[in-house]
């Protein structure tokens, strides 16, 4: 067995288990933490497929920014009202089962009726190549150097702005 298959099995089982754990927890904060774990496992799977940029974005944007936002909202909300999220309503249950079944059929179709041996079209091959860290880094530090630097100043200005508006004491 080569290392790729071992890694795949480990990451895929982590992803599957963490998503099951996530939807069965009563405490929403614990659910959110398991969702983060799920995102990390998925990012590992993307890396195995050589989609480096998507893997990094998955961690920075989803696991980093969006989930932190989620956690903030959950912690600011009153934990007393949390169980109200789990009200037993027929319509909601029916609808969620319908959506899950739809997604499941789609994925199952892709796995069992897809054509893994099909060769990539030139466009697809180019997009795979453009997604590597090397290609993105090269673009970022040559053609897009000025917008990249300006993005740095944008973040600096936003940090200073947040400091000015939210710092506790100002002398």
């Amino acid at each position: 067995m080569n290392i790729q298959i071992i890694l795949f099995i480990v990451l895929a089982s982590v992803a599957a288990v963490s998503s099951v754990v996530m939807i069965t927890r009563k405490n929403a904060v614990i659910s959110a933490v398991f969702l983060v774990l799920n995102f990390f496992a998925l990012a590992g799977l993307y890396l195995l497929l050589n989609a480096q940029f998507i893997a990094v974005v998955q961690i920075i944007v989803y696991a980093g920014a969006i989930m932190v936002l989620f956690l903030f909202v959950l912690m600011l909300l009153n934990t007393e009202t949390e169980h109200k999220l789990f009200v037993d309503k027929r319509a909601i249950k029916f609808f969620s089962i319908l959506v899950s079944a739809f997604v499941f059929v789609q994925v199952a179709y892709l796995i069992f009726f897809g054509h893994p041996s099909r060769t990539l079209t030139p466009d697809e091959a180019a997009s795979v190549k453009a997604g590597t860290i090397q290609a993105i880094g090269q673009q970022l530090y040559t053609n897009y150097i000025i917008p990249f630097e300006i993005a740095g100043f944008l973040l600096l200005a936003a940090t200073i702005g947040a400091l000015v508006l939210a710092k506790k004491k100002f002398e």
């Binding site: 917008p147 300006i150 944008l154 702005g161």
Partner: peptide
Amino acid sequence: FMGLELMSICFYV
């Protein structure tokens, strides 16, 4: 877009 955002965010603050 980058310039507009840099200017606007400073103005909001």
